[in-house]
Design a binder for these strands. Structure first.
Lengths: 188, 188, 188, 188
DNA sequence: TATGAATGAGCATTCATTCAT
DNA sequence: AATGAATGAATGCTCATTCAT
């Protein structure tokens, strides 16, 4: 056996996630990353060939987790499903923020990164389809107002995710609260 | 006397605004900026002493515009005022996004940037106070539901600004629509 | 582990000393430095964070060497001690010339440079005190003429150091010669 | 007539002299120069084609002044002449310091600068010859000790010029004092 | 003539990536 | 396998010099 393992791939991706969220894609450096890990900067290249691949892999993993959770939702009752879905998105709000950086990844250098981004794009589509499916069914059930275009309803729903939880309400309650607001509006 | 300017300060700040929104603070380079202007990179230093000052001045100008518009609103009817305010924020949604970068500006190098950031911070406070004032009055008027904490109502209101307008609805109508959604909710 | 160093820290500081003496602080560039070393310019940053730190560290090292030698002198006989001290200063005449540049170092960027400069300043004081002590004792012993103010005697003594040794007399003899001149004057 | 004269050539050279002494050749910038004059930076190019020419012209002017004064000295009595000469050098101690920078001037760009430097070099020779002449005559007169090589006597004499006048003694008295020290030495 | 503005060359510094131990 | 060290490319910024009014 060679040297002891300095850090695991999971640690690497977890740290990457945290740092990209904190500093943005352009503010994310491998030097920064290595400072938050237990090994040397050059060791990172044992796992990934370049910066792009790291971030792409990180995004892919987050997407994968969201897909798992989102597709496990029981869609019998559309409105219930939407509430559960909102909770999933709020729990994994990193996804939305991370993906904002996806377009900055230069895939020219790296086919692995390109593949990951394709996976992410496909996942994105899957989620969109699920969301549209639920919204359409909810609308057919007359659960949603008709005077506002569906894409706007969806957009507002989706945008809720990033609302800062300044009172630090526990995530499940926070998800419920946002759903309430979205459903019932602000008016008394 | 002297040569004709190759670009104006306004062009410089407009371009900066666009590029910071597009690339984020860390992705914003003076090389990039000069490529979107008609002159050389070094010419930029005729206007501002360093990168920090450019971005700070850009933010200050946007803040100033928003303050002008926001403080001109007639606050007689709180709910009407909030609708108008939302429109202002949507029109100037750049403010919100730009200001997310404010903390990255290193003011150690530049007192001018520090001064601009103070102005921005003061403006931020002014806007917050206006918003709280209107919300409190609306709540006293029983215009807002009481079962949701005020900070959450405010947070959701404010977060609406960033909802992507994917149908490209004209801004005034878009503002109205968002306000409707916020007021009445999604349920039929 | 890791690659072999392309140059040592000692080589770096020695070269810096030579180049600062040759070109002055403002004429000293890292490009110049790297051209006199075996590695690339950016490798220098493995040792020191910036130009200021390099020069400050260089000065500190020279000061340290001079302090070691100067404080090792037996001060029993003031005039003998002064002769030895002059020899030390002549041997290390770089100190005097290097320190002329100390005020140009901008310590705002670098706490390490600031610390080194403080060390240098303290060493300076130590040397000054030693010199004053010896001169005062010499004067009490009536070894020095009284018609010339002590600071002038000291100033001239100190200034001797920079006399160019155009005949390339070996350093010990050169120091002795200067001391003779200083003591006895030029008149026959 | 065109615009009013913004600054004279004399002001330009005086300011240059002061700034080169203060900052050294490499620390001397045209921007700095223009900040100490009443006109714009580009106006400097009405007088001189480049930085090298400015500094060379400045040096030449100082050399010319020194030559005038030095060659006007009555050489009848060598020791008296040397005392007067030392006073001249002390009065014009800038010459010595300025000329330390002469080697840094790149004459490749400028024939005018090259011509000025030649003048300076010739003046240097003239002064050296005068000095040697006086020293030799003084030695023949047995006014100088024989046990120290003439070049050393000359070198020490010349080096006296740069002794810092920390008590701010008026120049004529300061010159006399230095001469006394040089003649009689420090011993009581 | 005087000058405000433009600019390219040059240096400081950072960082992703490669090397060699 | 892990890593310390090397490095070139990229960017921030300055300054001498030129341009055009």
């Amino acid at each position: 056996m060679g040297r002891k393992q300095s850090f695991t791939e999971t640690e690497l991706l977890d740290t990457t996630k945290q740092l990209v969220l904190e500093h943005g894609y352009d503010g994310f450096h491998l030097k920064l990353l290595s400072q938050h890990l237990s090994g040397a900067r050059s060791t990172i290249y044992q796992y990934y060939a370049n910066k792009e691949e790291i971030v792409a892999a990180c995004m892919k993993r987050v997407m994968s987790a969201v897909l798992d959770k989102a597709l496990a939702i029981d869609e019998a009752e559309p409105m219930d499903a939407l509430e559960q879905l909102l909770l999933v998105y709020v729990e994994e709000s990193a996804l939305h923020q991370l993906l904002g950086n996806a377009s900055k990844i230069n895939t020219a250098n790296s086919s692995a990164a390109a593949r990951d981004l394709e996976y992410i794009e496909a996942g994105h589509q899957t989620l969109k389809i699920q969301l549209s499916r639920l919204f359409e069914r909810a609308q057919q059930n007359k659960d949603l107002r008709q005077d506002i275009p569906l894409p706007v309803l969806i957009g507002v729903f989706f945008n809720l995710i990033d609302t800062p939880n300044m009172l630090n309400i526990p995530t499940p309650a926070w998800g419920k609260l946002l759903f309430q607001m979205w459903i019932g509006g602000a008016k008394s």
